Simulated assay, not measured.
Amino acid sequence: MENNELLISELKTLLNGGGAHVGLKDAIEGLPFNLLGEKPFKLPYSIWQLVEHIRIAQWDMLEFSKDGNHKSPKWPDEYWPKASEPKDEQEWHNCLIQIDEDLEAFLELIESSDLYQEIPNGNGQSILREAFQIADHNAYHIAEIVIIRRLMDVWKS
């Protein structure tokens, strides 16, 4: 396997939640819908807000990677939902679908792009840098989801 193929393979594993941390699917598996808006122990975010934030940020990094002219949402206001819970199960479902679809699109992008080339109109960012950014950002917030589930005593044993 040549070096670039190995790097792409490792990036895919990392972006899918492999290695040292769980992925989003595992972090939310079996989570009751009625607990999505809970903020135990006065934590600042609910699981819904964390998952929706992951969706928005990942979408933004994908779009920026595809088009250096992409206009990002206003930080931090437009990266975090105001509501602590989704309005209904359809909104939750749609959020999860977009996360999956955007991640799949980003995985396709890393396979078809020069990982090291600077993204036009960026500040030195590359697809490789954005891949690490998505993986790091998602892992951070997924860990918060696991902690919230543990505090609510609804984490897998």
Rank of each mutant, 00 (worst) to 15 (best):
M1R: 03
N4C: 01
E5W: 02
L14P: 03
L14H: 06
L15T: 10
G18Q: 09
G19F: 12
H21R: 15
H21L: 13
G23K: 09
K25S: 12
L31K: 07
L31Q: 08
L31E: 09
L35A: 02
E38Q: 11
K39H: 00
P40L: 12
K42C: 11
K42Q: 12
L43Q: 02
Y45E: 01
I47Q: 03
W48R: 06
E52S: 10
R55Y: 06
A57V: 08
A57E: 07
Q58L: 05
D60G: 08
M61F: 11
L62F: 05
E63R: 14
E63W: 02
E63T: 08
E63C: 12
F64Y: 08
S65Y: 07
S65E: 05
K66L: 15
P73V: 03
P73W: 10
W80T: 09
P81F: 01
K82C: 00
K82V: 02
A83Q: 11
A83N: 12
A83C: 02
D88L: 13
Q90D: 04
E91W: 04
E91D: 08
C95I: 06
C95E: 01
L96M: 12
D100K: 12
D102G: 08
L103C: 12
A105V: 00
L107P: 03
L109F: 07
E111Q: 15
L115I: 11
Q117K: 15
E118L: 03
G122A: 09
G124Q: 08
G124K: 07
I127S: 05
F132V: 06
F132D: 01
A139D: 00
E144V: 09
V146K: 05
I148L: 15
R150T: 01
V154P: 01
K156V: 13
